[in-house]
Design a protein around this nucleic acid. Sequence first.
DNA 1: TAAACTCGGTCTTTTTTAGTCTTATTTCAA
DNA 2: TTGAAATAAGACTAAAAAAGACCGAGTTTA
Lengths: 168, 168
Amino acid sequence: MNRIHRKVEYALIALKHMRGKNPGERTTVKDMATQYRCPHDVLARVLQTLASRGVLKSEQGVHGGYLIAKDLNRVSFYDLLEMILGPMEVARCLQEPTASADSDPKAPFANDEAAVCELRETCNIVSPIQLLNRKMSEFYRNLSVAELIEAGRSLKSRESAKVNGAQL
Amino acid sequence: MNRIHRKVEYALIALKHMRGKNPGERTTVKDMATQYRCPHDVLARVLQTLASRGVLKSEQGVHGGYLIAKDLNRVSFYDLLEMILGPMEVARCLQEPTASADSDPKAPFANDEAAVCELRETCNIVSPIQLLNRKMSEFYRNLSVAELIEAGRSLKSRESAKVNGAQL
DNA sequence: TAAACTCGGTCTTTTTTAGTCTTATTTCAA
DNA sequence: TTGAAATAAGACTAAAAAAGACCGAGTTTA
Ligand code: SF4
Ligand code: SF4
């Protein structure tokens, strides 16, 4: 139910990987793609997006690669999702009414909003859906990428807490 | 991004509809399907599921129909999602460790869990993913269906015809 | 009995997501 | 200067999931 997208996982994998590097140290896409066995192209595209949004910095050339350019404590999980998947809209009606300062150029939504859902005329749950959308956005905004990535460092795996556990 | 499933919307529509009825009054699937212009079969199946889980009660026969059987304040949005979409798993690894009392027969997961995701061996974000899963479950659990459905009753929505000036 | 409904399974279509292929562009080291 | 190594980006294909349609069976009451 409600599964996260693969691209987001790739982003987290890459971010967590780079997080452990020395400042200024670059990591190439190929490196990460091979190490974590994720498709090179997909990962590359995701990282490009993140770079274009300022989270990463990319260096081209023979010794190029990516490095983290922004404090991940200041990047919310909402931001990450929004960069990769577009703005949060929990249902096909309603564009995000929060409409923070960004003007997304790839969203030409000027036309009729009623067209997006054919049930809109008779729908009785637009208010609930709006509420849900607001709450979920808030939830994602209150979760920083750093907090996510750092998970497991200081807390053991719940009840199990077995040292000689499964695979390592 | 992260759009809610149509079936869930249908469920909410139906629940909100029945919510306004007198206690004991039944509503037929056909009624709701035509009134809200949603596909009869899909709505019917969703309501069947809800009935089997005790949220609704179904009466067969010529004057049959559905009615709400459970206080919606005691039904969390998580419950609703779980009934319709199955247990929350934010990524393809990790089965929800909460494992509420049900033994799902369609889930023969006794075998190796590593098979569900081919990246598992090299993955560095299982802890983050688990954390996210936990947080999201918690979020959904803290949101009752009643709270959702009732949205818009007391707060102003878009163009409210309320003269009384109830503004948020 | 027969009508009007729920129930439950299977099937097809549609939509979304994931991944691949290809080509261009940038950069730097030899 | 030149070419290797990397990013950048568009188009295409395949796979998976979701939505919806079909149909046949069971129930209840007019
Ligand atoms: S069904 Fe109602 S809520 Fe869901 S998208 Fe269509 S209009 Fe918006
Ligand atoms: S990628 Fe890592 S986290 Fe996502 S499913 Fe595979 S194993 Fe679980």
